[in-house]
Design a protein around this nucleic acid. Sequence first.
DNA 1: CGACTATTGCGAACCATTTGCAATTATAGT
DNA 2: ACTATAATTGCAAATGGTTCGCAATAGTCG
Lengths: 129, 129
Amino acid sequence: MTEYLARVRQAGCRLTKARRAIIAYLQAHNEPQTAASVHRGLRGMRTDLASVYRTLELLERLGVVNRESDGKTAAYAFADRHHHHIVCRGCHRKACLPCALRLPSPRGFSAVQHQVVLTGVCASCALSA
Amino acid sequence: MTEYLARVRQAGCRLTKARRAIIAYLQAHNEPQTAASVHRGLRGMRTDLASVYRTLELLERLGVVNRESDGKTAAYAFADRHHHHIVCRGCHRKACLPCALRLPSPRGFSAVQHQVVLTGVCASCALSA
DNA sequence: CGACTATTGCGAACCATTTGCAATTATAGT
DNA sequence: ACTATAATTGCAAATGGTTCGCAATAGTCG
């Protein structure tokens, strides 16, 4: 049982087939996945898209995954694979970046978590502009 | 004519009443505003919500405003008022933070813009936990 | 002022996400 | 193992933010 499944269990939630499959799917993919792509990846089982959403929301609540949103569609990835992405405003392709955030610890706040959304114009889009 | 209006003009776009009003509304409010709240703020005129969206999209394309999204609803604020927020996971109150992001310039990308979503636990929520 | 074209308002479409509910299934206790 | 019970699911329909097509309107330039 992976640590992720254990966290679900510790929260008093059940380890259903759908939850196992969704976690396994996320583990098998490095890039953040949308609910739709997770659902597509599980098309062998008859798992409803709504259940995918419910599971992802649960995992986010437990702090297992992070939800990243570009404003349209949300994408989810394991929190312990923490890094950032930059999205090209031209072609929408993504690149990964190590986390280089050095924030002065915000006064009075503890357990701070962050999410960074970067956009830019990639080299090939800059040329064709 | 404010600098913002000038930027619109320089881009070869017309200075319509709706655009003036939307820019004025954003200037009058420090916190990022949603399309819906801008629209509500303009209820004196008969400006359509779709036009609000179109204008905000234009301003974003021109780099005049930033679009910030918490995953559900997008909010817009002038790019030159750039700063960040931290939200308490307990009481959901917000605090403002200066921007202290110092990213190594991502290889090959230009015109990089960023958005940071921070959450934490504020002092009073930490006590009551 | 008049012509030309960008922009608007309106309505409807779109799409991601959420919700209500009856049927199913994981789990704890026996 | 078996059962009781409550959590979870699938389905279908609703929701809500955002976008689009198009005819009417209104900036802007000469």
